[in-house]
Design a protein around this nucleic acid. Structure first.
Lengths: 210, 210
DNA sequence: CCTGCGCAGTAACAATGGTTACAGAGGTAT
DNA sequence: ATACCTCTGTAACCATTGTTACTGCGCAGG
């Protein structure tokens, strides 16, 4: 745990802060598909991601989903922080996109460290900043792009975070993430295949040249 | 200026911090329509809004606009903070929705005050938090709602921030904010009028019962 | 008063995306 | 092998939104 933590966060956190994290944090290793958090959950701790990727989803009253963005190594969840501060319930759902390692830090330490460590302060601010911009770009995609462009962007991003040109998803899975319907996604994927950009298979697809 | 500041922020900032703000901040009074910031601008300072409302817009490469949210009294612009930290250009456009009073604080003070004043730290975190949630709800609207619902929400929100049941906008203005087209908005507004919810006029409309 | 311009109303049409329905392919459990 | 279930492909259709085009109204400036 200490090695992992130092490797990923050693450059940005002071030695002393690293030690504190080791003392109070709990190391966690979770498999793909692990659900960290459901909408409406109260937040127990703050995750520091060491490896793997977590996908963050939004859901409306009718159960319609939408992929917001991925957290990757070195990231933390700004939503969590936002929720802690206000003692609010989670607004999002978080699911491990790949196997992942992380450290959970009790939220009480947040405020303490923010006062004490400059590096922590910067880390937290930077997280907010990155998350805001990530949300903005998600919003751009939805507001300004058509489904075919969004689909291409989705496939690229998914290939990037999983570091794999094979996307292990059914058409229905993709439809959920993009808040569309299976038929629409099948239609568009077929077009992409005809254009030679991807190759379709049952339960997965290959990215050839996006 | 001091009275205005104390009235709006006296409860949340320490006396000492208020004094610092007065010393280094510049008071500004701007008319409706004043453009604070354009996309790509470098950020000069951080605004503390005392009265009025500022609308924050996103724009894509093709010049298509989209209203993100309004800043109101007691708010500050998290985007500004995010930008300062990274020394980045603005991702958004900011325009006074009504006449507005505010205090501009040099961005160099940000970091200093964050270390020094707990109240400032809380204020900044809270701003990020509020802004994240505001962005999320904007995203919800766009992703999960149809145009007619979005239009109703837009009219309500606009009436709220301007504190006026008369919306002084042309159909084209509304279309820009919602990233739609004039004809579509006219069509939907007409329906709302037929339902007795609004009354249409040239260059403005009245909200009757939304 | 006339002219011109911006705004609003409307119709016809196109495009995109969502829905329903059904057939067939692949894989699994019995 | 059979039955079953999930995933994919496809067609037909609908709803919403966007586009183009044309009309007329109101108001400001000459």
């Amino acid at each position: 745990m200490i090695q992992d933590l130092k490797e990923e966060y050693g450059d940005i956190f002071e030695e002393e802060l690293i030690n504190e994290i080791v003392q109070v944090g709990t190391f966690k290793e979770v498999p793909e598909g692990y659900k960290f958090m459901e909408i409406g959950d109260y937040i127990r701790g703050m995750p520091l991601l060491i490896s793997g990727a977590i996908k963050i989803l939004r859901e409306d009253e009718d159960g319609d989903e939408l992929l917001l963005y991925y957290l990757e190594k070195g990231d933390t969840c700004s939503m969590t922080m936002a929720c802690c501060m206000g003692d609010k319930k989670s607004e999002i759902r978080a699911i491990a996109e790949t196997d992942a390692k992380l450290i959970m830090v009790p939220i009480q330490k947040m405020e303490e460290w923010t006062a004490k460590y400059k590096s922590w302060r910067n880390f937290v601010f930077n997280s907010y900043h990155v998350r805001l911009n990530e949300l903005l770009s998600t919003l751009d995609n939805i507001a300004f792009q058509k489904m075919d462009e969004r689909l291409i962007g989705y496939l690229k991003e998914k290939a990037r975070v999983t570091n794999d040109n094979i996307i292990h998803s059914t058409h229905q899975d993709i439809a959920y993430d993009l808040h569309s319907s299976r038929v629409v996604i099948s239609r568009l994927l077929k077009k992409l295949e005809e254009m030679g950009k991807i190759k379709l298979h049952r339960n997965y697809l290959e990215i050839l040249d996006l």
